[in-house]
Computed example of a mutant assay.
Amino acid sequence: MGHNLNFNEHTGKYSFFSVQQKAWHGLGQIVTDYPTSEEAIKHAGLDYEVIKSPLFTQSRAMTVGNAGELIEGTDTPVPNYFANIRTDSNAVLGVVGKDYHIVQNKDAFAFFDAIVGGGEGILYETAGALGNGERIFITAKLPGYIRVGKGEDVTEKYIFLTTSHDGSGSITAAFTPIRVVCQNTVNAALRNMSNVVRIKHTAGAKQRLEDAHKVMGLANIMSEQLEGIFNEWATVRITDNEVKKLIQLVLCPNKETYDLLKKGAEDELSTVFKNTVDDAFGYAMMSDTQQMDTTRGTLYGAYNAVTGYYQNVRNYKDSEAKLQSIVMGGTAQGKAQKAFELCSSFAKEGSGILLMN
């Protein structure tokens, strides 16, 4: 897989750090202890600032001097547009409008510190910059766990944040639980409660970023509710055939495929779709993490079959594509949400929600 990590020519290091785990593509810094926010910024090479600089264009008109020489045209300011410039390298990160408000990297870490008060309990696990430093990302572990069964099946609670300095997208902070035994990202939005906060880069962005921890305080509420739901699912039995049907419904790419599934015409399904389902079903049946008391033959195991497939089986063109798919609202996150909704219905209504015969 390729990478797009920023390489800082001043330090000779890639802008990325992780705690104890192998760094991205073997690049970046591995640290043994969880750092403070100030240490994390330096480990990740994010200790730079961004400024808005007036944007100019050079006139194509040429004038002739007294001696007959050609003189280049003058610089003409571009009204209401600015270049975002990284101050340590003078790299241009993007072009933005007059209302765009820069959220400095240190402010992103301040957001995390504010969640639990003064940074106590926040564990910074990874952070880095992509491209020329126009996009940064941070993952931090929150105190406590989501425990399923007798406590041996543990899910850790994370918040993932990404922001950009190039004018694209919004500041995004997502509550992202990760099941420890298989590193599955358990992204599920409860009814009337999103696990994502998005903040626009406008004049009030910095203030809203500081206030976002109030919204992300819902992480505790979501954790409690998810723990209850997952423990319930761990007691709901589901047959292997029902697991496969659920996987088919979740991975169904279009209405045509859905109609074929509904009428039981599996012979007419595309080879690509059948192979994808077989890969996910194989993971559901054979992965060691699917043989635990909490997952073997249970609805909780069926849900983890989908999240585990996208995390541990499916191929992605590069690490950024995987990150986008699993954490930043891409395909895997959408499929996990669909699986969550189907499992919720199954728990209440039984196999009748699996429309195939």
Rank of each mutant, 00 (worst) to 15 (best):
N254Y: 00
H25Y: 09
V313N: 07
R135F: 04
C252M: 07
T294D: 08
G119A: 14
V95P: 03
A219I: 04
H25G: 04
T36F: 15
I146F: 10
V196C: 09
D288T: 06
E134C: 00
T76M: 10
V64K: 13
I138A: 11
V327E: 14
W233I: 00
R208H: 11
S89V: 12
Q183K: 12
V306D: 11
G301C: 04
A83N: 13
G121L: 14
V313K: 13
V186F: 15
D211K: 14
K338Q: 00
E349I: 00
N315W: 00
H213K: 15
F340Y: 12
G117H: 08
I71F: 05
M328K: 12
Y34E: 11
A91P: 01
N8M: 02
S325W: 01
Q104C: 04
S53L: 15
K106V: 07
T162P: 02
G301S: 10
D211W: 09
K244P: 06
Y124G: 15
K255Q: 11
R60F: 08
E341R: 02
T298K: 04
N8H: 05
S53C: 13
E266Q: 14
L190Q: 06
L342G: 04
S319M: 06
M356F: 04
Y316V: 02
G350R: 01
R191V: 07
A219T: 15
R60D: 09
A234M: 01
V215E: 15
G330Q: 08
A234E: 09
I30L: 03
I353T: 11
V272S: 12
L355M: 14
A44N: 04
F281N: 15
H3L: 05
I146D: 10
V306M: 12
P79G: 07
A265Y: 06
H43S: 12
T276H: 04
M222D: 13
T331L: 11
D240I: 01
T126I: 06
T163V: 01
G133Q: 06
V197Q: 15
S59D: 11
D318C: 03
S53Y: 09
Q225R: 14
K150N: 15
D240K: 13
A108M: 12
I136K: 09
F273K: 08
N231W: 00
L261E: 01
V50D: 04
T126H: 02
Y258M: 12
K255P: 03
S325F: 03
M222Y: 09
A234Y: 04
L130E: 14
K157P: 05
A83G: 11
Y316Q: 01
G117I: 08
I171Y: 07
E266G: 07
P253A: 05
N231M: 10
D318T: 04
T307C: 10
G330I: 01
G94Q: 10
D153W: 05
L46F: 01
E9P: 13
D279I: 00
A83P: 03
T126P: 02
T239S: 13
Y300V: 06
M356Q: 15
S287E: 09
R60T: 10
Y258E: 13
S89K: 14
N105Y: 02
Y48I: 09
V103P: 01
N184W: 00
Q104S: 02
L46I: 07
L27D: 02
G352Y: 07
